[in-house]
């Protein structure tokens, strides 16, 4: 693990997109001291985040042609599942009742539990949601609690 501060560790991917679009729409309502001066020479004078970054499919580019959605559901689906699991402490049955695919829910829960040891090693993040990983999320690592079967 590397790094001193995990700036967007508490910003879900769908919010990453909406923040970037807000930036490109002229940072409406932004306090002066937080405003970003643009030096863009692009066609769109408001452009901060190049349009192509916003429109291309997200990819870690660790192998040829790889995209994030090879291994994960669409981010609006993933973020709703995570919002219910992490922020609202919902049980899998509630997620399924809300229309989520049971296999996907099951898989996301396994991934969430399995990544606990990585989060313990990560740089501190900045809290912006009602439950951020870090001091507000104190889960065991060596645990046999199976969210999917017990709740």
């Amino acid at each position: 693990m590397n790094g001193g501060l995990a700036v967007i560790a508490d910003v879900p991917k769908t919010r990453v997109y909406s923040l970037c679009r807000w930036l490109n729409r002229g940072q409406k309502g932004c306090p002066d001291h937080a405003k970003l001066a643009t030096v863009s020479e692009a066609d769109n004078p408001l452009e901060i985040i190049p349009d192509h970054i916003l429109t291309k499919p997200p990819s870690a580019e660790l192998r040829p042609g790889q995209v994030d959605q090879d291994s994960l559901p669409d981010y609006d689906v993933l973020d709703d599942i995570l919002d219910r699991l992490v922020h609202q402490a919902q049980a899998p049955s509630e997620l399924i009742a809300a229309g989520h695919d049971p296999d996907t829910v099951d898989r996301i829960i396994r991934l969430l539990s399995r990544a606990e040891f990585k989060r313990r090693q990560a740089a501190p993040g900045i809290k912006v949601t009602e439950r951020a990983f870090g001091t507000g999320w104190r889960m065991p690592i060596a645990s046999r609690w199976q969210l999917q079967s017990m709740e």
Partner: peptide
Amino acid sequence: IANKFGHLLLTTGNKSEIAVG
């Protein structure tokens, strides 16, 4: 680089990614 020049390294993982590892 952070070590050599005394800079703070910012990491770029978002919450969805950190959630599922």
